[in-house]
Design a protein around this nucleic acid. Sequence first.
DNA 1: TTTGTTTGTTTAAACGTTTAAGCATATTTT
DNA 2: AAAATATGCTTAAACGTTTAAACAAACAAA
Lengths: 336, 336
Amino acid sequence: MSKRVSLKDIAENVGVSIALVSYVMNGQEKQKRVGADVVERIREVARELNYKPNQIAQSLRTGSTKTIGLIVGDISNPFFGNIARVIEDEAIKHGYTVIFGSADEDLHKSASLVETLINRQVDGFIIAPAEGTSLQIKALQEKKTPLVLIDRYFDEVPTNYVVLNNFDASYDAITHLIGNGYRRIGMIAYQSTLIHMQERIRGYKEAMSDNNLKNAIRIEEVRYDYINSDMEKAMHKLMDGKNKIDALFFATNALTISGLYLIKKLNLKIPEDLAIIGFDGNAAFDFFSTPLSYIEQPIEEMGVEAVRVLVEQIDGSDEIANIQLRHTLIKRGSSL
Amino acid sequence: MSKRVSLKDIAENVGVSIALVSYVMNGQEKQKRVGADVVERIREVARELNYKPNQIAQSLRTGSTKTIGLIVGDISNPFFGNIARVIEDEAIKHGYTVIFGSADEDLHKSASLVETLINRQVDGFIIAPAEGTSLQIKALQEKKTPLVLIDRYFDEVPTNYVVLNNFDASYDAITHLIGNGYRRIGMIAYQSTLIHMQERIRGYKEAMSDNNLKNAIRIEEVRYDYINSDMEKAMHKLMDGKNKIDALFFATNALTISGLYLIKKLNLKIPEDLAIIGFDGNAAFDFFSTPLSYIEQPIEEMGVEAVRVLVEQIDGSDEIANIQLRHTLIKRGSSL
DNA sequence: TTTGTTTGTTTAAACGTTTAAGCATATTTT
DNA sequence: AAAATATGCTTAAACGTTTAAACAAACAAA
């Protein structure tokens, strides 16, 4: 890579000190009263040599990298890909760039990513925390690192967060199913202590209880790393035997997709054999034999708010923002 | 954000010079013959204070940021999301982190991203170049910036690239359709001069010509920014009237999805009314009324190779690598 | 004429590293 | 005992910025 042009090069070329060049490049020629002719010449030479400031040097000197560290579960997961895109755009609007990492819902990968990003001196973090990372998050918080959690948070660690109101979303979905006459409603969730999952489960349970269906509650949990095999077992548990369910609620997009493959394989009629509500919109939902009802998250808003709150924190605010956003229940054939 | 621990802090604490601390932190205590007891104490204090090297300072001093700039069309597009994931993992393996940006296939966004990343002193670029960016790419190339293009490249600018053998892929898909008895085969592509699109088109044309179907060639082009409305017009052109097609080949994943929405709306029977081959696998393809045949790209390999070649370039190689990867044609109901 | 102010510029330190060079002191070789 | 070498450490410069402080020259006010 050929040598980059520095302030020094311009200074030597014009025959002035580095300071003057710096002033001019930063538009401070008025306050620092640089001579008009010198301003002119510096500008000219800078253009000629195609000067680009070295952000690394700037960062070292100013202590700010104008960089946001984004840690999600997996950037190739549509939910995270979409939110990453929103965050990217918002970050740029605020003058930041983003460095991202996928933690695969893994404690150690997450720790390693946090360390890498800290070493790179990011100005702040946006994190969808993996299970068991509450200590990592707490440590960041204690070092007063600007931080916003998305999608999930920890009750025991007070931090900024921007999440879906998962309880409401679940409650709404289940109430809708009950309203349409379904009674034996099951749910398939990830095996996880993370709050977004627990809240989605709580919403399901409470909606069932509030409708005198407490006895009909049937939850199956699936491990993140064995989603397809566990899904098969779960479905069989719920669908086999005389007590089989008549409606099924999936707790995430990936779970929904995985479940749909099975449902297709089992040749179930939707919603006659089984009504379904999934999570997060998706072209796949639209093309399924019966278009799927689902809970839509306000991804755009989530990303926008996350960046807004983070930038406020970076700028010195110490108010904690806890933001819960509202879902939209998209009702279609699969839950009629 | 609380002040970070530096080499100086450790040095003062132990009562030695900064240089010694640096040597120990870099594992050079043998070559630089640091006293065994001092090594011990430095290690201890570093652990106690939880020292983390400031990568910004390291970068400034060493001239290497260990950072890769990744520019794609749109990170929320599954193809790019998936390849970004692979690139991320590979980069980490090589000791790099990635800064990404979505250029939205836009010349100016691309220019602005390149500038931002240059200012951030990335060690090299992986770029899926947007239409009309050949001058940007050429400029990078001339400054000897390590660079690998993916998905597309420019014939007129010799660079490293890792792409699909798009001609072969298209040719194979069309040959397969012809083999199954289809003759009036249409194609819907993006309006673009980019090589990947041109090659896909060329593959289609040549397969048609080679089978004496030159007269049956029907290509409709769709604008990236008006995909859905243009798609509607294109479909009508191809499907209305007496000369209507009996098979359709889509040139990208997004085009396929957009087309499928219309096909569903028009209630066409697949493959009876229209056979279809799409691009890039997708859950949506699996759930469509008839499972879709499609061209699968070796995304994993593409990402792995791109990073490998880039790191070689960063390490000083000046061999130009032009890598064309082979597709897999997934044959299913939609093209029977 | 002296003093004070304005204008335009330079100097130098700092950010946190890395690393070549220098410098004592101790140890080995003659 | 002198010379040579080895050992263990410090000094200082450099990377490219930003910016407070110093300074000189020109001009204005007393």
